[in-house]
Computed example of a mutant assay.
Amino acid sequence: MENLRQQFIAFSVDAGVLRFGEFITKAGRTSPYFFNAGLFNDGAILGRLADFYAQTLIDSGVEFDMLFGPAYKGITLASATAVALAAKGRNVPFAFNRKEAKDHGEGGTIVGAKLAGRVVIIDDVISAGTSVRESVDLIRAAGATPAAVLIALDRMERSGKDDALSAASAVQEVSKTYGMPVVSIANLDDLLAYLPQGGDSELGRYRAAVAAYRQRYGVTA
Rank of each mutant, 00 (worst) to 15 (best):
R19N: 09
V136A: 07
S166C: 06
S169K: 10
D65P: 00
Y33L: 11
G47W: 07
R118L: 04
D123R: 14
L85C: 07
F35E: 00
R5E: 12
R29Y: 12
V149C: 14
E63I: 03
L85R: 11
Y53E: 01
F34Y: 15
G218M: 01
G204M: 13
R5P: 10
R214P: 07
A44K: 09
A147C: 07
A78S: 13
I75D: 03
S184C: 13
N97L: 00
L203M: 12
R133G: 12
A147P: 03
V174G: 01
L57C: 08
R29N: 11
Q55G: 03
L150V: 02
F20W: 04
G218S: 09
V17W: 01
S31G: 08
R216C: 12
P93E: 00
A54R: 14
N41W: 06
A211I: 04
P70Y: 08
A144N: 05
D162K: 12
A71K: 04
T56F: 07
G74M: 08
L188P: 05
G179M: 02
G108P: 12
L46K: 10
F94G: 02
A142K: 05
I121T: 00
I185Q: 04
S169H: 04
G61L: 07
E22C: 11
T130I: 08
S184M: 04
E2A: 14
Y206H: 15
V62A: 13
V13S: 02
R98H: 10
G204A: 10
M66G: 12
K102W: 08
A50V: 09
R98A: 10
R133W: 04
L39M: 14
Q7T: 08
V17Y: 01
G61T: 12
A10V: 04
V183T: 07
A50K: 11
Y217D: 03
V183R: 02
A152Q: 09
R216L: 15
R155M: 06
K88Q: 15
Q197K: 15
S60F: 03
G218V: 06
G129V: 02
D200G: 12
V171T: 15
R5V: 12
T81R: 12
R5G: 11
K26E: 10
S12W: 01
A15T: 11
G69M: 09
I139K: 10
A95F: 06
R133S: 15
G47I: 09
Q7V: 05
V174Q: 09
K99A: 05
L4A: 13
L138W: 00
A142H: 02
A15S: 15
L39E: 13
A86R: 14
A170K: 01
K88D: 02
Q215V: 05
R98Y: 03
L115D: 00
D65E: 05
T145W: 06
A54H: 11
D163L: 13
K73D: 07
A209Q: 14
Y178N: 08
D14I: 03
D59G: 02
A212V: 09
D51G: 12
A221C: 10
E100N: 11
V174A: 06
V62M: 08
N91G: 05
S201E: 11
S60P: 08
D123T: 14
R48T: 14
D124F: 00
A164W: 03
D103V: 14
G74F: 01
N41F: 06
N41V: 04
K176A: 15
G218K: 07
Q7I: 08
A152F: 08
